[in-house]
Simulated assay, not measured.
Amino acid sequence: MSAKATTPPEKMMFQLTLRRRGISEQAVLRAMEEVPREAFVQERDRADAYRDSALGIACGQTISQPFVVAYMTEQLKLTKAHRVLEIGTGSGYQAAVLSRLAAHVVTIERFRTLADSARRLLEARGYHNVEVMLGDGFAVPEQLGRFDRIIVTAAMTELPEELVQRLEPAGILIAPVGPHHGVQTLVRVVRTATGFDRKELVDVRFVPALPGIAQQL
């Protein structure tokens, strides 16, 4: 089902739900409207693409519910000048949304199957400012440098200091922090002139972030 085939009521309810739940940044709402979520879910789930719920994808992973995608994106306070790092590509949906708001997105995925499929899909859909890398989100290559924004889309039991240090001055990081098989809290870290400001936001549930590149899949 293409974006054009999606019935107007589904699209309208999709946007209305985001607004009702507190998403108010017009650029974020516009990005959520422009990126066809049905293209990033499994074929069997396309009829449910615009429901506000997480859906399963390959490799035992998930595509986050639209509200969480929009909320995390809004908290990043993106501009067209920003360079963004995403840990956990998944289907590529979050990266596609980020690409509408930032200059460049580097997204790292530990599952080769997901990295390859997301890369093909993003390229085919014209998201040319997204770079998909197969790699370990706990060991971001040094040559990638620092980033204006960092978003983690899998649960970390704690934030690695090495990742926080990859923020540029005034940079923002957002990540779900907490137990792997339970409720996590979205944490926002802002790099200031004197250190780092950390704030807890809302409770969420994400699949675990694991170190290393997956040996299979």
Rank of each mutant, 00 (worst) to 15 (best):
R119F: 01
P36V: 01
A54M: 14
V68E: 07
D45E: 14
R110K: 03
A95Q: 06
G88C: 04
N129T: 10
A54C: 13
H104E: 14
A95Y: 07
E38T: 04
E109P: 11
A70I: 01
I87N: 01
M72W: 09
A118Y: 00
R44V: 09
A70P: 06
S117L: 07
K80S: 11
Y127P: 05
D52H: 15
S91T: 13
A58C: 02
V68L: 12
A70D: 03
V41A: 00
M32A: 09
Y127L: 04
A49M: 11
G126N: 10
D116Q: 13
R83M: 04
A81M: 13
L98I: 02
L78D: 09
E25V: 12
Q42A: 11
L76A: 01
E43A: 15
R51H: 04
T113R: 15
L78Y: 08
F40M: 07
N129S: 14
T62Q: 05
G126M: 06
E123Y: 05
R83Q: 15
G126T: 12
T113Q: 11
H128V: 06
V69G: 06
A39E: 13
A81K: 15
I108T: 02
G126W: 13
V41Q: 01
L101E: 09
V97D: 07
E33W: 13
Q75P: 01
G92Y: 08
S53Y: 10
G90E: 07
A54I: 04
A103R: 15
F67P: 04
L101R: 08
V106F: 12
L76V: 08
K77S: 10
T89K: 13
E86V: 01
S91W: 08
A31R: 06
D52N: 15
E109V: 09
Q42D: 13
S91Y: 07
V97N: 10
I63R: 09
I57D: 14
P36T: 05
G60W: 12
E43P: 02
C59F: 03
R44W: 02
V105E: 12
K80M: 05
D52V: 13
I87P: 06
T107Q: 03
G56V: 04
E74C: 00
T107G: 00
E38L: 06
R37N: 11
E25H: 13
F111Y: 15
L98H: 09
E25L: 12
H128G: 11
R110D: 01
I57P: 12
T89F: 12
V97K: 05
A118G: 05
H82Y: 14
G126Y: 10
A81P: 02
G60E: 12
L101C: 09
A27G: 09
G56N: 14
V69L: 11
T62K: 06
I63Q: 11
V97S: 10
P36M: 01
V97M: 06
E34W: 14
T73I: 02
Q75N: 10
L101D: 09
